[in-house]
Design a protein around this nucleic acid. Sequence first.
DNA 1: GTCTATAGTGGGATAGAC
DNA 2: GTCTATCCCACTATAGAC
Lengths: 220, 220
Amino acid sequence: MPTPEARVRDGAATRRRALHVALDLFTRQGYGATSLRQIAEELGITKASLYYHFPRKDAILQAILQERGTEAEDVLAWLRAQPPPAAALEPAVLRWVESSSAEKLRGIRFLQANPLVADGLAGTGAERIGTPLATLADELVALVPHPAPEDALLLRMALLSINAAVAAAAQSDVDDDVVLAAARRSARALVRELLADLPRDEPREPPGVARVSPGTEDRR
Amino acid sequence: MPTPEARVRDGAATRRRALHVALDLFTRQGYGATSLRQIAEELGITKASLYYHFPRKDAILQAILQERGTEAEDVLAWLRAQPPPAAALEPAVLRWVESSSAEKLRGIRFLQANPLVADGLAGTGAERIGTPLATLADELVALVPHPAPEDALLLRMALLSINAAVAAAAQSDVDDDVVLAAARRSARALVRELLADLPRDEPREPPGVARVSPGTEDRR
DNA sequence: GTCTATAGTGGGATAGAC
DNA sequence: GTCTATCCCACTATAGAC
């Protein structure tokens, strides 16, 4: 669409590059610790030029967040289309975990580096990640017979297996494939742990709990 | 020790209160986003007075970090005193997870809110948390027959179960007891998942090295 | 030990020329 | 679309009185 006499500098391209560079810096240094000057420098332009593309600093953040977050809704739709509820739990959780592409891992790493920035930004697409995931968690907990608060938490942990895997892999260069594989195994193991203690909830003593420190048993 | 004519204002107490308030604010808003003015205001003193107790802002951070981090060494010592290696894995991981008190949870929440601040601070006690844990992870991986990179990651995830539980419980007020219980169950489930796939890992093929991405084998 | 006052720096943001 | 120049503000940190 650019007219023949368009400048050598391509605005749209600069904008894209800016988003890429910014996400990178935000992930490595944190949002607050990254200045516009630094982003501009990396792009080879000036701070003021950056303002042509984004009216405010957090507009960059918004633009980054706005491009993701429909996966949870997809899994929700699938889940609601399933006839029998109980057996759907593990497939649903795995479906969510599987939906993590390499591109999504970048997003997860960013969110883990900026945990507070995420929920400080209401109405900007940030809750398009959090809220649907919470809804998904809620609907999945409903599939568990007698969900104790501890069970709900364990289920959330299963859903967040990718996040846990990314966190565990931080600062020890591991391939994304390995991270995803570990996340899958974790999700499966946690769902099964969740369902295992359900039928015969507490017969007498749990069959194989290593008693490490006496007196740290809780109620449940 | 204060002389009878000591001021009504108790310096040591102010310092303690400052550390408590600071940890709180750092956790809620992040280290960078918390100003000295804000901390001082909450204490009922001025910025300048705060400088009497701490020469620089990050001295507050150091003082906070310096009070923790021997648990991993304790578990290491216990581990090395165990005669038969293989069976010690699950007890060791649980021992580490069990060592989380309510006070430690505060620390974990802080670190999760400030993931980058932690590793940006070398020589200040920050690595007294990270390094021993890494060592513990390494020694534990050695107990696994044919540790693939994916297995090592899964083991780290087991050790970090408390962190994952805290993360999953964020912004949905859950009792610390419940968080700890979920962490324990997660740790157990992950260790068992780790050991389950081992005996009959892959009957032929390289003796048990999950070939996920060729060429990412590391040294050690 | 706490105060007031201020120096110095770096950040986000705007105006207007090219 | 990118530039130079500039404004304004909040923050860290210091000096010195009480």
